[in-house]
Amino acid sequence: MAVDIIVCAKQVPDPEGPPSSFEVNEAERRVTARGIPPVINPFDENALETAIRIKEATGAAITLLSLGKGLSRAVILKAVAAGADSSLLVEDDAFDAALLDSFTTAHLLAGAISKAGPYDLILCGRQAADTNAGMVGLILAQFLGVPAITLAQKVEVSEGRVVVERVLPDGYEVVEAPLPALVTVSGEVGDLRYPSLQAIKAAKGFPQTALGRADLDLNLPALARLETVALAIPSRERRCALVEGDTLQEAGRKLALLLRQEKVL
C-alpha cells in the first residue's frame, strides 16, 4: 500500500560552519550567518532519507514541506531530487526563523498541511540546528490530533500502521501507531543519499505548491508563547598552555608532569 508522506524540512545556516560564521547581533536579538550556505536541517535530511526508504520498501508519495523566509530554491531542488515527488513551500518575510517561536511554527505548518490534502505519515527531524528546541514535531502532532513517536532510528509502514525503533538512552524500543501519525527522526537513521545530476534536472519539473501568509490566515503575534529578550555570545574561550618537546613523546610526558605539578591530577 503506497502511503502519502510529508517531510518537514527546515532551511538553516550550515551548522557545521565555523563559530566565526555565526554573527550574534545582541541588539536585534538575531544570529546572522556569514559566508556559509543554507542547508536542509541535518535531522530533516535523516527524515527525508527515512521517507525514501519507505518509498522503496512499500511505495510512497513524498512531499517536502518547508516554511521560511527567502527559501533557497537550489537547496529545495537538491533535496527533492534525492527522492521526493513534490514540494510545498510556505514563504513570507514574516516567517523569519528569528521571529517565530515553536508554537507559531507548528500552527503555520499545521495550516499548510491542512491545505495540502490527506496524508498518512508526517516525518520531522528530532530538532532543528538553529532553535535546538525539539518541539515543533510533537506540537504539530497535538494540533493535528495524530499520535506521535519521537527519536526514530528506523521506520517501517505496514497495514495502516507505522512501526518505529525509538532511541532510548541505553538502547531502543519498538513502538507502533496507527496511521495517520507523526514521527520525529534521529541521526542514527543515516545520511541522506546524494541525488544524481540527472535527478536534479528532472526534479525541476516536479509539482511545486507555494503558500504565503494570506493563505494561512493566522494571527501570528497571538500565537507565540515565548519571547526572546536577549541574545548573547557564550563566553567559553580559555587561555591554553601549550606543551612542547623535542619529540611528541616528550611533549606527552611533559603534559603529564605539568598536570601533576599544577595539581590538575
Binding site: 601549550l242 616528550e250 610526558r253 603534559l255 603529564a256
Partner: peptide, 24 residues
C-alpha cells in the same frame, strides 16, 4: 578551535602523544 577553549594542549599526532602521556 579546541585549543581556544582548552587550558592545556599538545599540538601533534595523538598516536605519539597519548601513549607517552599514558606511560608517564
Amino acid at each position: 578551535y579546541i585549543f581556544k577553549v582548552s587550558d592545556y594542549g599538545v599540538v601533534g599526532d595523538w598516536k605519539q602523544v597519548i601513549p607517552a602521556f599514558t606511560t608517564a
